[in-house]
Nucleic acid binder design. Structure first.
Lengths: 184, 184
DNA sequence: GTCTATAATCGGATAGAC
DNA sequence: GTCTATCCGATTATAGAC
Protein backbone atom coordinates (compact mmCIF):
# COMPACT_ATOMS: atom_id res chain seq x y z
CA UNK A 1 0.00 0.00 0.00
CA UNK A 2 2.70 2.46 1.01
CA UNK A 3 4.59 1.36 -2.08
CA UNK A 4 1.82 2.23 -4.45
CA UNK A 5 1.07 5.52 -2.77
CA UNK A 6 4.67 6.67 -3.01
CA UNK A 7 4.87 5.49 -6.61
CA UNK A 8 1.92 7.67 -7.51
CA UNK A 9 3.55 10.58 -5.72
CA UNK A 10 6.72 10.06 -7.74
CA UNK A 11 4.80 10.06 -11.01
CA UNK A 12 2.93 13.18 -9.98
CA UNK A 13 6.19 14.93 -9.17
CA UNK A 14 7.65 13.95 -12.54
CA UNK A 15 4.61 15.40 -14.29
CA UNK A 16 4.77 18.60 -12.24
CA UNK A 17 8.48 19.06 -12.87
CA UNK A 18 8.04 18.57 -16.61
CA UNK A 19 5.06 20.91 -16.65
CA UNK A 20 6.84 23.62 -14.64
CA UNK A 21 9.72 23.60 -17.09
CA UNK A 22 7.58 23.52 -20.23
CA UNK A 23 5.04 26.11 -19.09
CA UNK A 24 7.69 28.60 -17.98
CA UNK A 25 9.47 28.19 -21.31
CA UNK A 26 6.57 28.07 -23.74
CA UNK A 27 3.47 29.34 -21.96
CA UNK A 28 0.12 27.65 -21.45
CA UNK A 29 -1.27 27.30 -24.94
CA UNK A 30 1.86 26.14 -26.70
CA UNK A 31 2.32 23.21 -24.34
CA UNK A 32 0.20 20.11 -24.87
CA UNK A 33 -0.59 17.40 -22.36
CA UNK A 34 1.25 15.13 -24.76
CA UNK A 35 4.42 17.21 -24.41
CA UNK A 36 4.22 17.18 -20.64
CA UNK A 37 3.61 13.45 -20.37
CA UNK A 38 6.31 12.55 -22.86
CA UNK A 39 8.81 14.72 -21.00
CA UNK A 40 7.71 13.01 -17.80
CA UNK A 41 8.23 9.62 -19.45
CA UNK A 42 4.61 8.57 -19.68
CA UNK A 43 1.77 8.61 -22.19
CA UNK A 44 -1.28 10.84 -22.49
CA UNK A 45 -3.77 8.43 -20.97
CA UNK A 46 -2.05 8.36 -17.60
CA UNK A 47 -2.47 12.08 -17.10
CA UNK A 48 -6.01 12.10 -15.75
CA UNK A 49 -5.13 9.76 -12.90
CA UNK A 50 -3.25 12.73 -11.45
CA UNK A 51 -4.98 15.91 -12.57
CA UNK A 52 -8.55 16.64 -13.60
CA UNK A 53 -7.70 19.14 -16.34
CA UNK A 54 -4.89 21.01 -18.03
CA UNK A 55 -5.81 24.15 -16.12
CA UNK A 56 -5.48 22.39 -12.78
CA UNK A 57 -2.05 21.16 -13.85
CA UNK A 58 -1.11 24.71 -14.84
CA UNK A 59 -1.99 26.06 -11.43
CA UNK A 60 -0.02 23.38 -9.61
CA UNK A 61 2.90 23.70 -12.00
CA UNK A 62 3.16 27.44 -11.43
CA UNK A 63 3.36 26.86 -7.69
CA UNK A 64 5.97 24.19 -8.30
CA UNK A 65 7.99 26.54 -10.50
CA UNK A 66 7.75 29.28 -7.90
CA UNK A 67 9.03 26.99 -5.16
CA UNK A 68 11.85 25.73 -7.36
CA UNK A 69 12.86 29.28 -8.23
CA UNK A 70 12.71 30.33 -4.59
CA UNK A 71 14.96 27.44 -3.61
CA UNK A 72 17.36 28.21 -6.44
CA UNK A 73 17.63 31.95 -5.84
CA UNK A 74 17.93 31.53 -2.11
CA UNK A 75 20.62 28.88 -2.17
CA UNK A 76 23.36 29.80 0.25
CA UNK A 77 21.45 32.56 2.06
CA UNK A 78 22.31 35.36 -0.31
CA UNK A 79 22.41 39.05 0.47
CA UNK A 80 20.05 41.34 -1.42
CA UNK A 81 22.76 42.38 -3.86
CA UNK A 82 23.74 38.79 -4.51
CA UNK A 83 20.11 37.83 -5.10
CA UNK A 84 19.68 40.68 -7.58
CA UNK A 85 22.86 39.66 -9.40
CA UNK A 86 21.72 36.09 -9.65
CA UNK A 87 18.15 36.91 -10.66
CA UNK A 88 19.15 39.33 -13.40
CA UNK A 89 21.99 37.16 -14.67
CA UNK A 90 22.59 35.79 -18.15
CA UNK A 91 22.30 32.33 -16.62
CA UNK A 92 18.72 33.02 -15.54
CA UNK A 93 17.93 34.77 -18.81
CA UNK A 94 18.74 31.64 -20.80
CA UNK A 95 18.22 28.92 -18.23
CA UNK A 96 17.21 25.57 -19.68
CA UNK A 97 15.81 24.49 -16.35
CA UNK A 98 12.66 25.60 -14.57
CA UNK A 99 12.50 29.38 -14.66
CA UNK A 100 10.91 31.83 -12.24
CA UNK A 101 7.25 31.95 -13.31
CA UNK A 102 6.87 35.65 -12.46
CA UNK A 103 8.62 37.11 -15.53
CA UNK A 104 7.87 34.11 -17.74
CA UNK A 105 4.11 34.34 -17.35
CA UNK A 106 3.52 37.96 -16.42
CA UNK A 107 1.58 38.97 -19.52
CA UNK A 108 0.02 35.52 -19.92
CA UNK A 109 -1.94 36.04 -16.70
CA UNK A 110 -4.20 38.62 -18.34
CA UNK A 111 -5.81 35.80 -20.35
CA UNK A 112 -6.14 33.29 -17.53
CA UNK A 113 -9.06 32.76 -15.17
CA UNK A 114 -9.24 34.31 -11.72
CA UNK A 115 -8.13 31.17 -9.95
CA UNK A 116 -4.82 31.02 -11.83
CA UNK A 117 -4.30 34.78 -11.46
CA UNK A 118 -4.84 34.38 -7.74
CA UNK A 119 -2.13 31.74 -7.59
CA UNK A 120 0.20 34.07 -9.46
CA UNK A 121 -0.63 36.85 -7.00
CA UNK A 122 0.32 34.63 -4.08
CA UNK A 123 3.66 33.81 -5.69
CA UNK A 124 4.34 37.51 -6.24
CA UNK A 125 3.56 38.23 -2.59
CA UNK A 126 5.90 35.44 -1.54
CA UNK A 127 8.57 37.04 -3.70
CA UNK A 128 8.15 40.50 -2.15
CA UNK A 129 8.06 39.01 1.35
CA UNK A 130 11.35 37.31 0.64
CA UNK A 131 12.86 40.55 -0.61
CA UNK A 132 11.62 42.19 2.54
CA UNK A 133 13.00 39.48 4.82
CA UNK A 134 16.42 39.46 3.16
CA UNK A 135 17.00 43.15 3.98
CA UNK A 136 16.22 42.59 7.66
CA UNK A 137 14.06 45.61 8.26
CA UNK A 138 16.25 48.06 6.36
CA UNK A 139 13.63 48.27 3.63
CA UNK A 140 9.96 49.22 3.33
CA UNK A 141 6.93 48.10 1.35
CA UNK A 142 7.38 50.62 -1.45
CA UNK A 143 11.05 49.84 -1.97
CA UNK A 144 10.38 46.14 -2.08
CA UNK A 145 7.62 46.56 -4.69
CA UNK A 146 9.89 48.69 -6.82
CA UNK A 147 12.62 46.08 -6.64
CA UNK A 148 10.17 43.34 -7.55
CA UNK A 149 9.05 45.23 -10.66
CA UNK A 150 12.65 45.88 -11.67
CA UNK A 151 13.57 42.22 -11.32
CA UNK A 152 10.45 40.78 -12.95
CA UNK A 153 9.99 43.51 -15.55
CA UNK A 154 13.68 43.74 -16.35
CA UNK A 155 13.95 40.00 -16.96
CA UNK A 156 10.70 39.88 -18.94
CA UNK A 157 11.68 42.76 -21.23
CA UNK A 158 15.25 41.46 -21.66
CA UNK A 159 13.86 38.09 -22.77
CA UNK A 160 11.35 39.56 -25.19
CA UNK A 161 13.81 41.22 -27.58
CA UNK A 162 16.28 40.06 -30.22
CA UNK A 163 18.96 42.70 -29.59
CA UNK A 164 21.38 40.93 -27.26
CA UNK A 165 23.39 44.01 -26.48
CA UNK A 166 20.29 45.94 -25.46
CA UNK A 167 19.13 42.94 -23.47
CA UNK A 168 22.32 42.93 -21.40
CA UNK A 169 22.10 46.67 -20.94
CA UNK A 170 18.57 46.36 -19.57
CA UNK A 171 19.67 43.73 -17.06
CA UNK A 172 22.57 45.85 -15.82
CA UNK A 173 20.52 49.05 -15.58
CA UNK A 174 17.77 47.27 -13.63
CA UNK A 175 20.30 45.57 -11.43
CA UNK A 176 21.87 48.85 -10.45
CA UNK A 177 18.54 50.54 -9.90
CA UNK A 178 17.27 47.68 -7.73
CA UNK A 179 20.37 47.84 -5.54
CA UNK A 180 20.05 51.61 -5.17
CA UNK A 181 16.29 51.57 -4.58
CA UNK A 182 16.58 51.60 -0.81
CA UNK A 183 18.52 54.86 -0.86
CA UNK A 184 15.66 56.96 -2.21
CA UNK B 1 -9.92 50.76 -59.93
CA UNK B 2 -9.14 53.41 -57.35
CA UNK B 3 -12.44 52.55 -55.70
CA UNK B 4 -11.62 48.91 -55.35
CA UNK B 5 -8.14 49.60 -54.12
CA UNK B 6 -9.32 51.93 -51.43
CA UNK B 7 -12.11 49.55 -50.46
CA UNK B 8 -9.56 46.81 -49.91
CA UNK B 9 -7.48 49.16 -47.83
CA UNK B 10 -10.49 49.98 -45.66
CA UNK B 11 -11.18 46.28 -45.07
CA UNK B 12 -7.55 45.66 -44.26
CA UNK B 13 -7.57 48.48 -41.73
CA UNK B 14 -10.72 47.11 -40.11
CA UNK B 15 -9.08 43.70 -39.77
CA UNK B 16 -5.90 45.23 -38.35
CA UNK B 17 -7.78 47.37 -35.84
CA UNK B 18 -9.82 44.40 -34.65
CA UNK B 19 -6.71 42.22 -34.45
CA UNK B 20 -4.71 44.85 -32.55
CA UNK B 21 -7.43 45.10 -29.94
CA UNK B 22 -8.02 41.36 -29.59
CA UNK B 23 -4.34 40.36 -29.55
CA UNK B 24 -3.40 42.95 -26.94
CA UNK B 25 -6.28 41.82 -24.76
CA UNK B 26 -6.13 38.06 -25.15
CA UNK B 27 -2.76 37.15 -26.65
CA UNK B 28 -1.97 35.23 -29.79
CA UNK B 29 -3.29 31.75 -29.10
CA UNK B 30 -6.59 32.68 -27.54
CA UNK B 31 -7.67 34.75 -30.53
CA UNK B 32 -9.02 32.96 -33.58
CA UNK B 33 -9.19 34.27 -37.11
CA UNK B 34 -12.94 33.89 -36.69
CA UNK B 35 -12.93 36.32 -33.75
CA UNK B 36 -10.90 38.86 -35.67
CA UNK B 37 -13.04 38.72 -38.78
CA UNK B 38 -16.32 38.85 -36.88
CA UNK B 39 -15.12 41.88 -34.95
CA UNK B 40 -14.11 43.43 -38.26
CA UNK B 41 -17.58 42.69 -39.65
CA UNK B 42 -16.60 40.01 -42.14
CA UNK B 43 -16.41 36.23 -42.34
CA UNK B 44 -13.50 33.86 -42.13
CA UNK B 45 -13.13 33.23 -45.84
CA UNK B 46 -12.29 36.84 -46.63
CA UNK B 47 -9.24 36.82 -44.40
CA UNK B 48 -6.76 35.30 -46.81
CA UNK B 49 -7.35 37.98 -49.41
CA UNK B 50 -5.50 40.29 -47.00
CA UNK B 51 -2.99 38.22 -45.05
CA UNK B 52 -1.20 34.98 -45.84
CA UNK B 53 -1.32 33.58 -42.32
CA UNK B 54 -2.31 34.29 -38.75
CA UNK B 55 1.32 34.95 -37.85
CA UNK B 56 1.65 37.61 -40.54
CA UNK B 57 -1.49 39.26 -39.18
CA UNK B 58 -0.02 39.14 -35.69
CA UNK B 59 3.12 40.93 -36.78
CA UNK B 60 1.19 43.67 -38.58
CA UNK B 61 -1.31 43.99 -35.72
CA UNK B 62 1.45 44.52 -33.17
CA UNK B 63 2.85 47.34 -35.26
CA UNK B 64 -0.64 48.77 -35.56
CA UNK B 65 -1.18 48.57 -31.79
CA UNK B 66 2.17 50.22 -31.18
CA UNK B 67 1.33 53.11 -33.48
CA UNK B 68 -2.12 53.52 -31.93
CA UNK B 69 -0.61 53.54 -28.43
CA UNK B 70 2.05 56.03 -29.48
CA UNK B 71 -0.61 58.35 -30.89
CA UNK B 72 -2.76 57.97 -27.79
CA UNK B 73 0.00 58.52 -25.25
CA UNK B 74 1.45 61.42 -27.16
CA UNK B 75 -1.80 63.28 -27.68
CA UNK B 76 -1.33 66.91 -26.78
CA UNK B 77 2.47 66.84 -26.63
CA UNK B 78 2.76 65.70 -23.05
CA UNK B 79 5.67 66.28 -20.72
CA UNK B 80 7.50 63.24 -19.38
CA UNK B 81 5.62 63.35 -16.08
CA UNK B 82 2.29 63.61 -17.86
CA UNK B 83 3.18 60.69 -20.12
CA UNK B 84 4.13 58.58 -17.11
CA UNK B 85 0.87 59.49 -15.36
CA UNK B 86 -1.15 58.55 -18.39
CA UNK B 87 0.73 55.33 -19.13
CA UNK B 88 0.52 54.03 -15.58
CA UNK B 89 -3.09 55.11 -15.10
CA UNK B 90 -6.11 53.05 -14.13
CA UNK B 91 -7.59 53.99 -17.51
CA UNK B 92 -4.73 52.29 -19.33
CA UNK B 93 -4.76 49.35 -16.92
CA UNK B 94 -8.36 48.52 -17.81
CA UNK B 95 -8.68 50.06 -21.26
CA UNK B 96 -11.23 48.38 -23.49
CA UNK B 97 -9.56 49.83 -26.55
CA UNK B 98 -6.26 48.91 -28.18
CA UNK B 99 -3.61 48.66 -25.50
CA UNK B 100 0.12 49.26 -25.70
CA UNK B 101 1.53 45.94 -26.94
CA UNK B 102 4.72 46.23 -24.90
CA UNK B 103 3.29 45.23 -21.50
CA UNK B 104 0.47 43.15 -22.99
CA UNK B 105 2.74 40.81 -24.90
CA UNK B 106 6.04 41.03 -23.04
CA UNK B 107 6.15 37.42 -21.84
CA UNK B 108 4.35 36.10 -24.90
CA UNK B 109 7.34 37.05 -27.05
CA UNK B 110 9.45 34.27 -25.55
CA UNK B 111 7.28 31.76 -27.44
CA UNK B 112 7.13 33.59 -30.77
CA UNK B 113 9.46 33.25 -33.72
CA UNK B 114 12.39 35.58 -34.36
CA UNK B 115 10.53 37.68 -36.89
CA UNK B 116 7.80 38.63 -34.43
CA UNK B 117 10.32 39.21 -31.66
CA UNK B 118 12.23 41.50 -33.97
CA UNK B 119 9.08 43.54 -34.58
CA UNK B 120 8.55 43.78 -30.83
CA UNK B 121 12.16 44.93 -30.42
CA UNK B 122 11.62 47.73 -32.92
CA UNK B 123 8.53 48.91 -31.06
CA UNK B 124 10.46 48.93 -27.79
CA UNK B 125 13.21 51.00 -29.41
CA UNK B 126 10.62 53.43 -30.72
CA UNK B 127 9.25 53.71 -27.20
CA UNK B 128 12.64 54.48 -25.66
CA UNK B 129 13.43 56.96 -28.43
CA UNK B 130 10.21 58.75 -27.66
CA UNK B 131 11.06 58.86 -23.95
CA UNK B 132 14.43 60.24 -24.91
CA UNK B 133 12.99 62.88 -27.23
CA UNK B 134 10.38 64.04 -24.72
CA UNK B 135 13.04 64.98 -22.16
CA UNK B 136 14.92 67.11 -24.69
CA UNK B 137 18.43 65.99 -23.89
CA UNK B 138 18.06 66.11 -20.13
CA UNK B 139 18.16 62.33 -20.03
CA UNK B 140 20.57 59.57 -21.05
CA UNK B 141 20.32 56.04 -22.46
CA UNK B 142 20.43 54.32 -19.07
CA UNK B 143 17.74 56.50 -17.55
CA UNK B 144 15.46 55.99 -20.49
CA UNK B 145 15.85 52.20 -20.35
CA UNK B 146 15.08 52.22 -16.65
CA UNK B 147 11.96 54.28 -17.23
CA UNK B 148 10.84 51.96 -20.02
CA UNK B 149 11.15 48.91 -17.75
CA UNK B 150 9.26 50.69 -14.98
CA UNK B 151 6.41 51.61 -17.33
CA UNK B 152 6.20 48.30 -19.15
CA UNK B 153 7.02 46.07 -16.18
CA UNK B 154 4.86 48.07 -13.79
CA UNK B 155 1.84 47.85 -16.04
CA UNK B 156 2.41 44.17 -16.83
CA UNK B 157 2.74 43.17 -13.17
CA UNK B 158 -0.19 45.35 -12.10
CA UNK B 159 -2.38 43.64 -14.70
CA UNK B 160 -1.32 40.13 -13.76
CA UNK B 161 -2.63 40.10 -10.19
CA UNK B 162 -6.03 39.92 -8.51
CA UNK B 163 -5.24 42.20 -5.56
CA UNK B 164 -6.52 45.59 -6.72
CA UNK B 165 -5.02 47.51 -3.85
CA UNK B 166 -1.59 46.05 -4.51
CA UNK B 167 -2.07 46.72 -8.21
CA UNK B 168 -2.66 50.43 -7.59
CA UNK B 169 0.27 50.54 -5.22
CA UNK B 170 2.55 49.09 -7.89
CA UNK B 171 1.44 51.71 -10.41
CA UNK B 172 2.06 54.58 -8.00
CA UNK B 173 5.45 53.29 -6.87
CA UNK B 174 6.60 52.80 -10.45
CA UNK B 175 5.25 56.17 -11.44
CA UNK B 176 7.21 57.92 -8.75
CA UNK B 177 10.37 55.98 -9.48
CA UNK B 178 10.14 56.71 -13.22
CA UNK B 179 9.78 60.42 -12.56
CA UNK B 180 12.75 60.42 -10.19
CA UNK B 181 14.91 58.25 -12.40
CA UNK B 182 16.69 61.16 -14.02
CA UNK B 183 17.90 62.44 -10.65
CA UNK B 184 20.13 59.45 -9.93
C1' DG C 1 -13.28 40.73 -52.47
C1' DT C 2 -16.43 38.36 -49.83
C1' DC C 3 -19.22 34.64 -49.07
C1' DT C 4 -20.43 29.46 -47.78
C1' DA C 5 -18.71 24.97 -47.38
C1' DT C 6 -15.21 21.85 -46.46
C1' DA C 7 -10.71 19.77 -45.92
C1' DA C 8 -7.12 18.63 -42.69
C1' DT C 9 -5.14 18.83 -38.31
C1' DC C 10 -4.48 19.27 -33.65
C1' DG C 11 -5.45 18.94 -28.71
C1' DG C 12 -8.22 17.98 -24.54
C1' DA C 13 -10.70 14.50 -22.51
C1' DT C 14 -12.72 9.65 -22.06
C1' DA C 15 -13.15 4.31 -22.35
C1' DG C 16 -11.57 0.02 -21.57
C1' DA C 17 -7.70 -3.56 -21.50
C1' DC C 18 -3.99 -4.96 -18.57
C1' DG D 1 -1.77 3.47 -12.49
C1' DT D 2 -0.49 3.21 -17.09
C1' DC D 3 -1.31 1.87 -21.54
C1' DT D 4 -3.67 2.09 -26.48
C1' DA D 5 -7.48 3.63 -29.02
C1' DT D 6 -10.97 6.83 -29.83
C1' DC D 7 -14.31 10.64 -29.55
C1' DC D 8 -15.16 15.35 -30.09
C1' DG D 9 -14.74 20.21 -30.49
C1' DA D 10 -12.06 23.91 -32.17
C1' DT D 11 -9.11 26.13 -35.56
C1' DT D 12 -6.14 27.09 -39.59
C1' DA D 13 -6.32 27.10 -44.23
C1' DT D 14 -8.32 26.12 -48.92
C1' DA D 15 -11.95 25.64 -52.81
C1' DG D 16 -15.35 27.38 -55.48
C1' DA D 17 -19.76 30.20 -56.14
C1' DC D 18 -21.15 34.97 -56.74
Amino acid sequence: MAWKESHKQVSRERILTAAAKLFTHKGFDQVGIDDVMQTAGMTRGAFYAHFSSKTELYEQAIINAGLAAAAHFNEGKLSLDELINRYLSQAHLRSNDIRCPLPCLVSDMAHEDERVKHTYTKILKGFTQHLDAITEGKSNADTVLLQAVLLIGGMAVARSITDEKLSKKILSVCSEAAKNAAAN
